[in-house]
Computed example of a mutant assay.
Amino acid sequence: MMTDPQPAFVLVRPQMGENIGAAARAMLNFGLARMRLVDPRDGWPNPRAVAMASGAAGRVLDHAGVFPTTAEAVADCDYVFATTARGRDLTKPIFTPEEAMTRTRDMLAEGRKVAVLFGPERAGLENDDIARANAIISVPVNPEFASLNLAQAVLLTAYEWRRQTVPAVPEALSLAGTEMASQIEIEKLGDHYEERLEEAGFFFPPVKAEGMKLNLRNLWSRMPLTRADVQTLHGILRQIVRHRDGKP
């Protein structure tokens, strides 16, 4: 199991084994493995949860702690979040999942233990559960349909945890077995097109020819071309010229 500091995700009175298994999968997807269960309706262990966890996520269930009450599940924690759209009659700070997981990361770095409560599928956390939390996590969902599935709520929170702890690459280019084209390769591609376009009378009128060539060069330099792309563009132009000249 993972030994790095991370929050405990506490499923309070979960009703369906399938949702427990789906929550375990969502947790492991984003590097979380500390699950706690409070009084699961159908007892524990639950074969439907194991079937839904499917493979590696089963280890999250294998190490899940089971507690009779919410108070006992969070007794060793220094700070507790409750995920809910309710509890507005209780005075507590309310955070988005992103801000909550940022604070969680900082508290864990200080050696504090953090838990996140998730309520049962039908009605969510009761006020007695929420009263034991220090703060509320509220997802900015459609107010006309605010209900989230248990596994969805776990996934959203786990995703924000992962975002706060693993630097994300804002943009990446997946190369399918090739490399990016070098500057000289792009330069030769530009030469090839400029030569053929010159033959075709594209650069007209003459007074605008230099500006048109400059714009074309700039176009090539802006494009993130791979070597395969360059070869394809050369091949397209050669085929057009052959067709123009009546060659097969």
Results as ranks from 00 to 15, higher is better:
N218Y: 08
G55W: 13
M180K: 06
V139S: 05
G43W: 09
M2D: 14
R48C: 00
L61F: 02
A51E: 13
F30Q: 11
P14V: 11
L233N: 01
A153C: 09
P206H: 15
T232F: 15
A115Y: 03
S221F: 01
W220Q: 02
V154P: 02
D42T: 12
V139L: 12
A151S: 15
T3Q: 14
M107Q: 10
R122H: 13
W161H: 10
R196G: 10
E198F: 01
A24S: 12
E179F: 11
D128Y: 01
Y193D: 04
F204L: 09
Q239H: 00
A22C: 06
N149R: 06
Q152W: 03
A33F: 06
A75G: 07
I184A: 11
G190V: 11
I136Q: 10
M35E: 05
R25S: 08
P167S: 12
G235Q: 05
V241Y: 00
G246C: 12
P97R: 07
P248R: 06
P170A: 14
R88K: 14
V74I: 15
R222S: 04
M180V: 03
T83R: 04
N218C: 05
V207F: 12
S54C: 12
V80R: 04
A51L: 09
A151F: 01
G124T: 04
N127T: 09
L225N: 03
V207R: 11
A64H: 07
A131H: 08
V139M: 09
G124E: 03
G17K: 02
L37M: 09
G31D: 11
T84C: 08
R196M: 14
P93S: 13
E99N: 11
F67S: 08
Y159C: 14
H234A: 05
H192Q: 12
S147Y: 02
D42S: 08
P45Q: 11
E185H: 05
R25M: 07
G111W: 06
R227V: 10
P206C: 00
D129F: 04
A85N: 10
T3N: 14
S174C: 03
G190Q: 08
K213Q: 11
R162H: 14
A82F: 06
S147F: 02
T165Y: 11
R88H: 13
E199H: 07
A71R: 15
M2V: 07
L125W: 02
G31E: 11
V154I: 10
T232L: 15
K213F: 09
W161L: 15
Q6R: 13
H63W: 11
A49T: 07
N149W: 01
G43L: 10
K247D: 13
Q164Y: 00
V116E: 08
Q239K: 07
Q152G: 03
E199I: 08
F145I: 02
P40D: 09
K208F: 15
H63K: 12
I184S: 11
M52D: 03
P97K: 09
A151N: 08
P170Q: 13
D4G: 06
T70G: 07
F118M: 12
F203V: 05
A57W: 02
L175K: 13
V50C: 04
G17L: 01
I236T: 02
N134I: 00
P170M: 13
E185W: 02
A153Y: 03
M35I: 08
M52N: 09
D76Y: 09
N19P: 00
F204S: 07
M212D: 02
L197P: 02
G55I: 12
A133I: 04
